[in-house]
Design a protein around this nucleic acid. Structure first.
Length: 218
DNA sequence: GACCAGGCACATC
DNA sequence: GATGTGCATGGT
């Protein structure tokens, strides 16, 4: 089987087993962007508490996020970890939005995915995964999100070499799959789900993994 | 108490 | 250009 065939087969397998994951949770595009930044190297449960704090104080608007101080914002998002850095990242995003798009998310999102990606990467604190998450899950444009889980699963199972980097990985998925927002959305979410259950960082022996007969070494 | 979580920027070699 | 380090809370 070719690599693209394996990538497509694994998608069908995961989707059949787990069904649609319903990402991204949240009420608005702006909340989605905040979640994408807050969840950097952090579990989603910790992020939810931070977002709830922001909601309770009605801070989830570009106007309020512009007015609030970085220190005040940091205290509200403490539960998400790295709160000083993340408060700065959010402020950087909001400032960029005002400087380039008159503070309007719609204007920022109204451009080609690759152009939007380049702009997002100009913001200090937004790296490849966060940029792609925003493009796919907040702006609803087709780009494949790679993360530590994607790399771990597909390298351990021998689909790609261990040293494959972010861009190579992304190209491979996007060249293999139909260019479809829904597929990219569900596939990434399904990878996160199966990795949490079956492809742990320090557990090379895997049982119950839907990708291979078990037990197997990964 | 160690380990991990839906990364990123920056320093150093 | 590869490799190492700081950032930090909360769950298992």
């Amino acid at each position: 089987m070719t690599i693209p065939e394996r990538i497509n087969k694994i998608y069908r397998l995961l989707y059949t087993k787990y069904g649609p994951q319903g990402w991204w949770p949240g009420d608005s595009e702006l909340e989605c962007v905040l979640g994408a930044i807050l969840t950097q190297n952090t579990s989603w449960t910790n992020v939810e508490k931070a977002i709830q704090n922001l909601k309770d104080l009605n801070v989830i608007s570009v106007e309020m996020l512009r007015l609030i101080t970085t220190d005040e914002l940091a205290q509200l998002i403490r539960s998400s970890g790295y709160y000083n850095q993340k408060a700065l990242k959010i402020k950087n995003f909001i400032n960029f939005l005002y400087e380039n798009y008159e503070g309007e998310l719609e204007k920022m999102f109204d451009q080609e995915a690759s152009m939007l990606r380049d702009k997002l990467l100009e913001i200090k604190g937004i790296g490849p995964e966060t940029a792609d998450s925003i493009i796919l899950y907040c702006a609803n444009k087709p780009v494949f999100v790679i993360d530590a889980y994607t790399h771990r699963i597909f390298s351990r199972h021998g689909v790609v070499p261990e040293q494959t980097n972010y861009n190579e990985m992304q190209e491979l998925f996007m060249d293999s799959l139909e260019n479809d927002v829904e597929i990219f959305n569900e596939y990434h979410a399904l990878i996160v789900k199966v990795a949490k259950e079956h492809c742990k960082k320090q557990k090379p022996i895997c049982t119950g993994c839907p990708l291979e007969d078990d037990p197997h070494t990964v």
